[in-house]
Design a protein around this nucleic acid. Structure first.
Length: 386
RNA sequence: GUGGGUGUAGCUCAGGUGGUUAGAGCACCAGGUUGUGGCCCUGGGGGUCGCCGGUUCGAGUCCGGUCAUCCACCCCA
């Protein structure tokens, strides 16, 4: 038997569509336009944006050479493609901000586990050309609105990663601290010192956590501008009644983030507890060859929130069926008309009244219209509300 | 990539120490006297016991391998 590839799933769950509808509606209410970018992109796009030091690019990409000899891969995340499109269509040369939302499959070659698939779906938004911290607040509010609408409990964690002015200085002091404690840290953290030192901050090793408690924190080392923005961010969220926690150890796995960074966490879905993550990436457009443009966005992991969504299962639509074959053409015609107003299902098989009623019940229909011998003669329908 | 758990019907699972035609519940289908669903009763269809090999007179059961799946690490949404 041929099965779906490892870590990939067929989706029948009606909650998937519900999430699509809710995310779409809220994104559009916030003034975001839909964008669909190719699932296949040039590999170099992700190497340059996500970062070559990241595991995503390093070992998790579905990468191959196509028949034309191009080095391509299935997109492992959504932001890079949207930024590429933004630059390619010269939106960076216009002064007006651009706001996009997307919804689609992403691919990472990982070992599957709860909340972690090889093909998964993300809804995301990206805002270009707005430097104001209020755009960050907008975007966080957008995410919060989605979770509220879907009735999903979350904890919002925020942090600031600083800008090119304060981050490198901070990194130096952190590395200094780490090297001082090098022998006490776990193997992974020792490796991280050279590769990606800020990732040591969210190490799960208890011993490391104890040591890193005393490590210098980026939020204590922000430049004046970043610090002011971070203060305004907190104030802005409070103003909107959005609860948050400051997590000085919150870092992002993708290299392009600066300044505001945030994560929405759920404690009901296992170890992969992040249901949404994002932040600011003011340098990314420039880095990918566009004109320097501010950017901020986030993505929600659809499969991670699917189990948290409750769906109402009320009776809906009309079931139509025939007890004798001659009634079917009339039913077909009637159904065509009724469908202008509501959902109508026509059972093509001739069945007994009892069998029809049973099928309508199982199918969760609200109303039944059946035609048999008597109804055909009198030009009526057997009607019943379920 | 590393570690652990699990693979028997569409689903959830039983099947001591190897021994006839492999079971249950749910689901599905058909009936319970002419055309009224959900409840109940009766009957029925469904399984290469994940796959390959080994031990044995005999393997769902023991052994090895493999694949899949789940959970965790790593990483991330």
């Amino acid at each position: 038997m041929i099965k779906a590839p490892r870590g990939m799933k067929d989706i029948f769950d009606p909650r998937f569509l519900k999430i699509f509808d809710v995310t779409r509606k809220i994104a559009e209410n916030y003034g975001f336009d839909y964008i669909e970018t190719p699932i296949l992109e040039e590999t170099s796009l992700f190497k340059r944006s996500v970062g070559e030091s990241s595991d995503i690019v390093n070992k998790e990409m579905y990468q191959f050479i196509d028949k034309g000899g191009n080095d391509v891969c299935l997109r492992p995340e959504g932001t890079a493609g949207v930024v590429r499109s933004f630059i390619e269509h010269k939106f960076d040369r216009q002064a007006t901000p651009k706001r996009f939302w997307y919804f689609g499959p992403m691919f990472r070659y990982e070992r599957p586990q709860k909340g972690r698939l090889r093909e998964f779906h993300q809804f995301g938004v990206e805002s270009f050309g707005v430097e104001s911290i209020y755009e960050d607040i907008n975007i966080i509010a957008l995410a919060a609105d989605i979770f509220d609408e879907l009735k999903i409990d979350y904890t919002l964690k925020i942090n600031s990663l600083g800008c090119p002015e304060c981050m490198p200085k901070y990194k130096e002091t952190l590395v200094e601290f780490l090297n001082f404690h090098k022998n006490e840290l776990c193997e992974d953290c020792q490796r991280r010192i050279g590769q990606n030192p800020i990732r040591t901050l969210d190490c799960k090793n208890k011993n490391c956590q104890a040591i890193l408690k005393n490590a210098p924190k980026i939020t204590d080392n922000l430049c004046e501008n970043c610090n002011k923005d971070f203060e305004n961010l907190k104030e802005g969220l409070n103003n909107l009644g959005i609860n948050f926690e400051i997590d000085k150890n919150l870092v992002r796995g993708l290299d392009y983030y600066t300044k505001t960074t945030f994560e929405f966490i759920s404690n009901k879905i296992g170890a992969q507890s992040a249901i949404a993550g994002g932040g600011r990436y003011d340098r990314l457009v420039e880095f990918l060859g566009g004109k320097a443009t501010a950017g901020v966005g986030f993505a929600i992991g659809i499969e991670r929130i699917m189990d948290l969504v409750e769906i109402e299962n009320e009776r809906k639509g009309i079931y139509m069926g025939a007890i004798i074959a001659d009634a079917l053409p009339i039913i077909m015609k009637k159904a065509k008309n009724l469908r202008k107003e509501t959902k109508v299902f026509v059972e093509p098989n001739i069945k007994s009244l009892k069998a029809h009623l049973k099928a309508a019940d199982k199918g969760n229909f609200k109303k039944v219209l059946i035609m048999g011998e008597n109804e055909l003669r009198e030009n009526t329908f057997f009607e019943k509300e379920l």
